[in-house]
């Protein structure tokens, strides 16, 4: 069965101050499809990503999100993850004292235990082998595994660690929030190639980016543009090229400024 994530008329606000950010987002992503999400700074792309993952910083005010017909918004964040949703964060937090390897082992075991309460988790040798393979395929140094999660990581290292986690957890729908930013040229190639390998019939992707460079590796089936908390324009791969060339002004003119709340 092909997993489908359906976002319908989603409205969300910042919990702390009630500022409304998402103002009616509609989008359907299927396993195997690659969607690019572009749009000016502050248009609400990261907010959408975080809302889909259940970040308590945001409140849903209207709309719904269905994962294979089930209400995603009713699920806790950890359930969403185990159901196959993954978010590669734009700005991952650091977790002092918890090593990447230890963290990922717990994440895998949480999945195994959810499937089978009797499960003893993945045997350590098997886990170590799997980690090595994934690290090799992403050009990640093995010493990464023993470092505290994101603590003192460079921007590029954080992004690689996010992709490594994605590779290990094998999501059905992956949201990548500017995974291509903060990388130097070599790192960009490695990360993009890594993501390229992960995409395929098994994984649907929502790739949030400002640049075409990432899309040279993973050709999107659809490109969407978000402005002021709504998807205002959708098209094929050519839309991204068009945006790179022309910027967003033509869209601003076409759709105007939203009325102030």
């Amino acid at each position: 069965m092909v997993t489908t994530l359906e976002i319908r008329n989603l409205h969300a606000q910042v919990a702390a101050n009630g500022e409304s950010i998402l103002r009616g987002v509609n989008l359907t992503i299927k396993q195997g499809e690659v969607h690019a999400l572009m749009g000016p700074n502050g248009s609400g792309k990261s907010t959408l990503a975080n809302v889909l993952m259940g970040n308590p910083q945001y409140e849903i005010t209207a709309g719904e999100v269905l994962l294979d017909g089930e209400d995603l918004l009713e699920m806790d964040t950890d359930e969403r993850s185990r159901a196959g949703i993954f978010l590669a964060f734009q700005y991952p937090v650091s977790i002092p004292g918890v090593t990447l390897a230890n963290f990922l082992r717990h994440a895998i075991n949480a999945r195994l235990k959810a499937e089978d309460p009797e499960s003893k988790g993945m045997p350590i040798p098997k886990f170590v082998r799997m980690m090595r393979e994934k690290m090799n395929s992403l050009g990640v140094d093995h010493s990464f595994a023993g470092r505290y999660l994101n603590e003192g990581f460079s921007g590029g290292e954080k992004k690689r660690a996010e992709v490594l986690q994605m590779a290990v957890l094998e999501p059905k729908i992956a949201i990548m929030d500017e995974t291509d930013s903060g990388l130097d040229i070599d790192a960009l190639r490695i990360v993009a190639e890594g993501i390229q390998k992960l995409t395929g019939p098994e994984m649907g992707a929502l790739v949030i980016t400002h640049y075409q460079r990432m899309l040279d590796y993973i050709t999107p089936d659809f490109v969407h543009v978000m402005m002021h908390g709504q998807i205002v324009e959708s098209g094929g791969a050519e839309l991204a090229l068009q945006l790179e060339e022309k910027g967003y002004d033509w869209l601003r003119e076409k759709y105007g400024q939203p009325e102030q709340a």
Partner: peptide, 14 residues
Amino acid sequence: EQPIFYLMSRGIER
């Protein structure tokens, strides 16, 4: 809350 959210986003219970 944000570090908890991060860990939970990988499937780890609260």
